[in-house]
């Protein structure tokens, strides 16, 4: 069992106030921890997403490091180019950071991410996963979980969320981690760890989308916490695609409270909820077995 280390991350203002995230959005909170962890010796690439909107454009960008706002499918490819260019100039110590949403990671950006991972590009890729195309009004992505209603799955999504973590693990990249805005110390510790590793690092942050999931304005962080505590979104680390570490003590409740906070699940029947619970339990059991190896 791995203990969460209590740390104080330095907030030296890498994420500025006045950003344009929706009021109450937890993505801004996660971004603050991540940008402060990355620090000044970094450049970023961001694909069209809520992150791109929150970061904003010059001269009103909320980040203090330069960001290339690229195309939706190319974040990992553009980051690869930047990293190689910096290396060619002897600036190999500069962190190359990617911000992308789940659409730009699980769907249209997967080819570029998979190829960058296969080349083990020295980039730090952060996916802000709000389980849908929330920036175009809330359509499903392949990260949308089963049962959830979106603009393009009006009766609820019939298939499961794509298991990106296992896809990435199969690439045997040095580091994969999941983090949540409800567990900021854990997030900061994993960021510090990732920063010190050479090669492709991918961090997936679960971001409850207030309008997209139908969550009350005050409930973003508590919804994220319920996702962790119900085992829907386990906080884990996978090193070299093989060694899994997680927190067995995190899963302390059934998924009911998590589902109840969201309108996208309110059409579910008792049987639907039971099926979702079974899906979550099976996933948790599988991960636990993996972590015990």
């Amino acid at each position: 069992m791995n203990e969460v280390k209590k740390i104080d991350y330095a907030d030296d203002g890498q994420f500025c106030s006045g950003h344009v995230a929706c009021a109450g959005c937890a993505e801004a909170l996660a971004m603050r921890v991540i940008l402060n962890s990355v620090g000044q010796n970094a450049v970023g690439v961001v694909s069209p997403s809520c992150s791109a909107v929150i970061l904003g454009g010059h001269p009103l960008s909320s980040a203090r490091i330069p960001f290339l706002h690229g195309t939706l499918e190319s974040a990992a490819a553009s980051a690869s180019g930047i990293k190689r260019a910096l290396r060619a100039q002897g600036k190999d110590d500069t962190t190359v950071l990617c911000f992308a949403g789940d659409g730009g990671t699980y769907d249209i950006g997967l080819q570029a991410l998979s190829s960058a991972a296969e080349r083990n590009e020295d980039i730090l890729y952060v996916c802000f996963d709000n389980e849908g195309y929330m920036n175009t009004g809330g359509q499903k992505s392949s990260s949308t979980p089963s049962g959830a209603v979106t603009g393009s799955t009006p009766l609820g999504k019939a298939t499961q969320k794509k298991n990106l973590i296992e896809i990435l693990a199969a690439h045997r990249i040095p580091y994969i981690a999941t983090v949540s805005p409800s567990h900021l110390n854990d997030m900061a510790a994993k960021m510090d760890k990732a920063k010190a590793i050479r090669g492709t690092k991918v961090i997936i942050v679960l971001i409850p989308c207030l309008p997209g999931w139908g969550v009350a304005d005050h409930a973003a962080v508590s919804t994220a916490r319920l996702a962790v505590e119900s085992g829907v979104f386990p906080l884990l680390e996978i090193e070299d695609g093989l060694r899994t570490r997680m927190h067995p003590e995190h899963k302390i409740r059934p998924i009911d409270a998590y589902l109840a906070q969201q309108k996208r699940y309110r059409h579910l029947s008792e049987a639907d909820r039971a099926a979702l619970q079974a899906e979550v339990d099976a996933n948790w059991a599988r991960l636990s077995a993996q972590a015990a190896l």
Binding site: G103, D107, T136, G137, G151, S152, T153
Partner: peptide, 17 residues
């Protein structure tokens, strides 16, 4: 068959319905 993109996403949403 479609993919979300502003300002055309409503065509896909209407087709989904």
């Amino acid at each position: 068959a479609g993919y979300p993109i502003t300002p055309s996403s409503e065509v896909a949403e209407a087709m989904a319905r």
